[in-house]
Every structure is written in structure tokens, then in C-alpha cells.
């Protein structure tokens, strides 16, 4: 099932399906090594509009809800 990153819960593992949004967001995520088809693990979801903590390729990244909404993911069961 395809959803966006901000909907995932602690401990969920998902595959990035697509990155919505333009030039800027793609570049920024690419810089941190986040690309479509990469696997992400949610270490801690966002609370009260705060950022969430994810892990991609063994790198931890803090990511704001606004950004997370633009990342389409497919949950790995």
C-alpha cells in the first residue's frame, strides 16, 4: 500500500516509492543519500508537528513533517 512517510509509525520499515515536489526537495534528499527505491526505517515518528527521525542506509536523518508528506513510501510488511 502506498502512503506518505509522515503516516508511518515507530519501527515501520518502508521502501521509498517516489519523491513528490520539485528540484529543491529532490536535491536536498539526494544529498543525504535518500533516493527512490531506498529502504527507510522510522526510528521515532513526529510528535505535535515536530520532525521525525528516520534511518536510510545506516544514516540517521531528522525530517520535518512538511518534507515527509512529500515522500511516497510503500510499507514493507
Amino acid at each position: 500500500m502506498i502512503t506518505t512517510l509522515d503516516h508511518l509509525k515507530d519501527g515501520d520499515i518502508a521502501t521509498i516509492h517516489d519523491i513528490l515536489g520539485g528540484h529543491g526537495i529532490r536535491h536536498r534528499l539526494n544529498h543525504l543519500g535518500i533516493h527512490p527505491r531506498d529502504q527507510v526505517e522510522v526510528i521515532r515518528s513526529g510528535y505535535l508537528g515536530g520532525p521525525m527521525l528516520i534511518k536510510v542506509h545506516d544514516i540517521q536523518v531528522g525530517i520535518g513533517q512538511g518534507m515527509a508528506k512529500k515522500i511516497e513510501v510503500e510499507v514493507v510488511p
Binding site: 515536489g21 529543491g24 526537495i25 536536498r28 534528499l29 543525504l32 520532525p51 527521525l53 544514516i59 540517521q60 536523518v61 531528522g62 525530517i63 520535518g64 513533517q65 512538511g66 518534507m67 512529500k70
Partner: peptide, 11 residues
């Protein structure tokens, strides 16, 4: 701020 929000590596 032009960027849509936080993307921050936690080293």
C-alpha cells in the same frame, strides 16, 4: 525561508 522544512543529518 525558501526550503520547505527540516532535513538534517544526525551524525
Amino acid at each position: 525561508e525558501p526550503s520547505p522544512g527540516l532535513v538534517l543529518e544526525i551524525p
